[in-house]
């Protein structure tokens, strides 16, 4: 069962939702949209609720590397994100083709977040609700 209000623990959604801040959660009306901040049950720890932002949608080719997130080859404008500068000489780029019911989620604090870059895309049925400022 979801509650309506949650307290945020952890740094991965800074600066949007710093630790200790409160969010209001509601059931999703329709499908998640890019930019939505959602509450989800991560694949490896389904009993935990995580707070992340949807950045990749079903069917898209997404990539992360050199401090930049791309959708179908184009950089995504992300004014909300706190991204690390690309380390010199680090040219590694990882890419994912999202399935028909898969979403790519990341924390806004890109240097301090465990998200789809680590556990992979998230199935639609793992996304429990949408979060807004409390």
């Amino acid at each position: 069962m979801l509650r309506r209000r949650y307290r945020v623990e952890g740094p991965s959604m800074e600066p949007t939702h710093p630790p200790g801040s409160r969010v209001r959660v509601m059931s999703l009306q329709g499908e998640p949209r890019r930019g939505d901040i959602v509450v989800l049950r991560p694949p490896a720890t389904p009993r935990r609720l995580d707070l992340k932002r949807v950045v990749g949608l079903p069917g898209e080719m997404v990539s992360w590397g050199r401090g930049e997130f791309r959708v179908n080859g184009s950089p995504l404008a992300e004014p909300y994100a706190r991204s690390p500068p690309a380390p010199p000489g680090d040219d590694e780029v990882q890419a994912w083709r999202l399935g028909p019911d898969e979403y790519f989620v990341m924390g806004d604090n890109r240097l301090h977040s465990t998200d789809s870059r680590h556990h992979g895309p998230v199935k639609r049925d793992r996304i429990a609700g949408k979060a807004t400022d409390a």
């Binding site: 069962m1 509650r3 952890g10 991965s12 992340k52 924390g107 604090n109 977040s113 998200d115 609700g129």
Partner: peptide, 18 residues
């Protein structure tokens, strides 16, 4: 549809284990 509880705030993790 997810049933909602109006009670005390829960905890949601902005998780980082890096």
């Amino acid at each position: 549809r997810i049933p909602m509880n109006r009670g005390t705030p829960g905890v949601v993790h902005a998780h980082c284990d890096i």
